[in-house]
Design a protein around this nucleic acid. Sequence first.
DNA 1: TTGTAAGCGTTATCAG
DNA 2: CTGATAACGCTTACAA
Lengths: 332, 332
Amino acid sequence: MAVNIKDVARKANVSISTVSRVINDSKPVSDEIKKRVFDIIEETGYVPNPVARSLVMKKSRLIGIIVPDIANYYTGELLNAFEEIAKTYDYEVILCNTYGDFQQELRYLKLLESKQVEGMIFLSFKWDEAHQAFFERCNLPVVLVNRAAVNDRVFTVSIDHGKAVYEMTSEMIKRGHRELMLIRNGETEDVFGTEQLEGFRRALEEHGLPFRPEWVANGHYQANDAYDAVAALLKAGQRPTAIVTTTDDMAVGAINCLVDNGISVPGEVSVTGFYDTTLATLYRPKLTTVQHPIYDIGAIAIRMLIKKIDGQEIEEKHVRLPHGMVFRESSR
Amino acid sequence: MAVNIKDVARKANVSISTVSRVINDSKPVSDEIKKRVFDIIEETGYVPNPVARSLVMKKSRLIGIIVPDIANYYTGELLNAFEEIAKTYDYEVILCNTYGDFQQELRYLKLLESKQVEGMIFLSFKWDEAHQAFFERCNLPVVLVNRAAVNDRVFTVSIDHGKAVYEMTSEMIKRGHRELMLIRNGETEDVFGTEQLEGFRRALEEHGLPFRPEWVANGHYQANDAYDAVAALLKAGQRPTAIVTTTDDMAVGAINCLVDNGISVPGEVSVTGFYDTTLATLYRPKLTTVQHPIYDIGAIAIRMLIKKIDGQEIEEKHVRLPHGMVFRESSR
DNA sequence: TTGTAAGCGTTATCAG
DNA sequence: CTGATAACGCTTACAA
């Protein structure tokens, strides 16, 4: 049977309040007694019961993480960051996978609330009134990762998607491309998808290139989406010379389709990715892609959350991290 | 302020024990009172406090998961399964990422114990005395995923790695290959690495082919390991016609090295993977690989654990799931 | 069938 | 500085 505070108190010949004081360093205790208590703790291997502690403090030291899919590099890397930083602050993360299902999300929100999490990190595709209402009611801190800001009630951290697409598109144009296609994240509710589109359009405009709506496809992060989009374009007899995508997976899907149709990459068509995941260097040709500080985004998100939980004021409620670009073999 | 059992009791004009009885359905309560209580619960939105419940029941309904790295498809898919099934049984999983570090593992073991987890799932590379001693002492159920059985104190679930390698190797031999290389998981403590080697050796023997130790490389799951191993062999002027690997990533690494050296795959050399991750179909040439029921392994592991936690007897302590083989473009 | 009361292992208030 | 003691929200004998 595990030893508890009472046992320690008895063996050390002090009251339990004293023991509590020494383990929490909450009030002055004489050095002599402190040592006696520490010795007993050492000897018995006593560890305070976090459940009892939670009950009285009304704090669970739990953080809820809601993600649409765990099985990919991007989410995994984020989780690495959440987990690692949270531990540092003595918080535990509990994981909820929604498979992108809206109802599931709502269910998990309630579940997490009942589990007394002290805050949440949200990685879902959309953010709508139901979410908003929920957080309004339960008054829990939330931070959204790679979702656009809706208001100051929720915090966000991401890169500037519009700028990233703008820069990558401009770079392709500078390198001589005139026929460009965009495959973006096309959830209509996804504000970043819109941002991405705007970035693309702006790059074209600034270089005096025409914007053709039919050369914009809406993907959902997956390789297949891009494959199909490119296939459709090809079938319609159209052929861009550069394809800008917003996911490494989609870039690979696009390239696969091109190659399957006998079109060489980057010989005839250049393709760019997004995020710079492991896939970008594993795949051949290696991907030219937007470098996304995934781990850092995760680290900042969880730090913001914990800061807020601890009652500190957050000055910068919507953080935007800088991104980079790597030019590898998939573009010319 | 959240409503508690007392509030419900008062509003329903019953004692708190009665409320407890109706929410847990633990003892008979008259239909009339039951209805009254349910109405109040509905009205107030009361949710029992799981922390208080844990304290008295001495159960946390928490399961600890220890993994060496979250950011890959394999772990992610496993986590999907853990998370999903655990929720079904009203358990929460808490995640610990060790980056493969042994000391970190030990630290997490203690942490999880102090958090009162009721069981653990372990995905670490090795299993040694320190682990064994820990579980011996704290008497917590554990299940090891894709690690070999050490004894009956810990449960395991995996596929038969020896058989998988044996079959894939045999198949390559049947297809005419006589010069085969193996890149396996080479942690010396990794019993499956040994099993894999044995399977390879047995396939060669049964077909009267010589076993050359220098054509066996030890990787650590990563593409780079395989890349380097193949590069070394090539440098030594050796060239197999088929390379069997035990990871899709390693297969890709091997192919990349071959191609970088002007050797065509599968034209001149065939390469096979393991696990059938998303990479296997994203990459070109698409990978011939061993199909590994990742999600199922995770599902069985977490079910075994929960069963054990609930005090049920586990008849089959070391489960081996069947695997498959897919032949795609990376082999001839 | 229902209620009373004793914990569960802590922290925190209030005397001394 | 130290020690009783009352919470925290719930389950569960034990009584009624």
